[in-house]
Amino acid sequence: MSTNDQQPPATYVHVSRTTDTPAPATQAAPASSLQRTMLAAIQQYEREFAAANSSPTVATLLDLAQSYDRADTHTHREQLAAEVADEISLAEAGTIRRAAEAVKLAMPGIIARANLRCEDTATIARELGVTPSYVRRIIREQ
C-alpha cells in the first residue's frame, strides 16, 4: 500500500456565527413592507382569478341555504351576510342573484307541481321558505 491509501478521510467542519442582535430597523422595515405588498398582490390575484373562473356549485348553494336557515336571529343573519360578502366573488353573487330571481318567478309553477304530487301546504311552505297562506293563495289561483 502506498502512504496515500493509509491517510484518514478528510473531516469537514461547518462554522457558523449567530448573533442575538436583531437586524436594524432600517433593514427590517423594507423587507416587512415588501412582504405585505407581495401578500396583498397575491391575494388580489387569487380573488380575481376565482371570480373569473368560478361559478357557484350546488354544494355552495346548499351550504349557504343551510347557513341561512340556522341563522335564526337578525344578528346571526348579519354575521352570515358579512361572511358571504367576504367569501363569494362578484360573478358568483350575480349568478346566485339571477338564479334566485328565476326561482321567484317560477314559484307558482313549483307550488302547483308540489300540490299535484299531494304534498301538504305546510311542507311546501317550509321547503320554499314562504308562509302556508302564500302557498294556499297560489294553489287557489292555479
Rank of each mutant, 00 (worst) to 15 (best):
A50R: 15
Q43M: 10
A23E: 10
P108Y: 14
A91R: 12
L64W: 05
L105V: 15
T95H: 02
D72G: 06
R113A: 03
R47F: 08
L61Y: 03
M1P: 04
L116N: 14
N115Y: 07
Y45D: 12
D120Y: 01
T95D: 13
L105R: 14
E119N: 09
V130L: 15
L90T: 11
A102F: 09
M38D: 06
T73C: 06
S67K: 08
D86G: 10
Q43W: 04
A10E: 06
A71I: 00
R70H: 07
I110D: 14
I42N: 01
I124R: 15
C118H: 15
R70S: 13
I138D: 02
A23D: 00
M1I: 11
L61P: 00
Q35M: 13
P9L: 11
R98H: 10
T37V: 06
S2Y: 05
Q7W: 05
E127Q: 14
A10K: 02
T18H: 13
S32M: 06
T95G: 04
R36L: 11
I110T: 14
Q142S: 00
I139W: 03
L80Q: 01
L64P: 01
D120M: 08
A29Q: 12
Q44C: 01
N4K: 11
R97Q: 10
S54W: 03
E141C: 02
Q79H: 14
Q142P: 03
A91C: 00
A50P: 05
M107T: 07
D20R: 01
R70L: 15
A65P: 02
R98P: 11
P56Y: 06
R97W: 03
L128Q: 03
R113M: 12
P108I: 11
Y45S: 12
Y134I: 05
P30E: 08
Q6E: 06
A122F: 09
L105F: 14
R17M: 00
Q6D: 12
T60G: 04
V58E: 07
A114W: 02
I124N: 00
T57H: 04
P9C: 07
A59Y: 04
F49T: 04
A28F: 01
A106H: 11
R98V: 08
A51N: 13
P22F: 09
S67Q: 09
T95L: 12
A114G: 03
S54K: 03
N115D: 07
T57E: 00
E46S: 05
E127F: 09
R137C: 02
Q6W: 13
E48R: 09
S55T: 01
T73G: 00
E141Q: 15
E119P: 00
H76V: 04
S67Y: 06
R126L: 07
D5T: 01
L90Q: 08
Q6F: 09
Q27H: 08
T123W: 10
A99T: 13
P9H: 14
R117P: 10
D86Q: 11
R70N: 07
L61I: 15
Q142G: 07
A50T: 10
A93F: 14
S2F: 06
D20F: 00
D20I: 00
